[in-house]
């Protein structure tokens, strides 16, 4: 029989991992990933069964879903949105662009992946990733929400630099035909 303190702590951990409120940030992408993120809330994928709510206010969010390559003007906004979120929080970079700039890498107004600006915890590959993969990315970030970043580091839990990279599935690997 655990004591009330341990019970309370277990309840808090449970609550934190079962109530991920999403802040969606488009850092200059093409809309593909953004629409797929919204799509996860729709009947087919029903993200709300994991407690997901799409909140518009960064101060109330737990997981920052970033899409798109880092655009130079938006970069500052992204940083500001990230800073406004309270710990515990996690960052999920959705799509190839958010990972490394994708097809836009090298374009004049593009910095590269969003990892340049905020510490990314999970990268979800794809252009755009399917809603299933985006949900998978959110779920991969859930354990990180159990404790604030500093506490995680102190107890040797998942550190801010440990990055979960979802492996592409067999059907997602594009094989370029030899022309």
């Amino acid at each position: 029989m655990r004591g009330p303190r341990a019970l309370w702590q277990a309840w808090v951990r449970r609550s934190r991992t079962k109530s991920p409120w999403i802040v969606h940030f488009d850092c200059g992408g093409c809309n593909g990933c953004d629409i797929e993120i919204l799509d996860t809330l729709m009947p087919r994928f029903s993200a709300e069964r994991f407690g997901v709510i799409n909140v518009g206010d960064p101060r109330q969010g737990d997981i920052l879903l970033v899409t798109g390559p880092a655009n130079l003007r938006n970069a500052a906004v992204l940083r500001s949105v990230y800073d406004q979120m309270a710990e515990p929080k996690a960052v999920v970079a959705v799509g190839s662009c958010a990972a490394h700039g994708g097809v836009f890498r090298g374009a004049p107004n593009i910095l590269g992946g969003v990892g340049e600006l905020v510490p990314v915890d999970v990268f979800v590959p794809g252009c755009p990733p399917t809603p299933e993969r985006i949900l998978e990315g959110v779920i991969a970030a859930l354990p990180l929400l159990a404790e604030p970043r500093t506490a995680r580091q102190a107890t040797g839990g998942p550190s801010p630099m440990s990055i979960v990279m979802l492996e592409p599935r067999e059907e997602e690997v594009v094989r370029v035909p030899a022309s």
Partner: peptide
């Protein structure tokens, strides 16, 4: 009613606990 799977019944409690124990800004 919207043909979705909803959250657990205890979801508002989870939300409240999480909010209350977040690092306060």
């Amino acid at each position: 009613m919207q043909l979705r799977a909803g959250p657990p019944i205890l979801q508002p409690w989870y939300d409240l606990t999480k909010l209350a124990t977040k690092t306060s800004l």
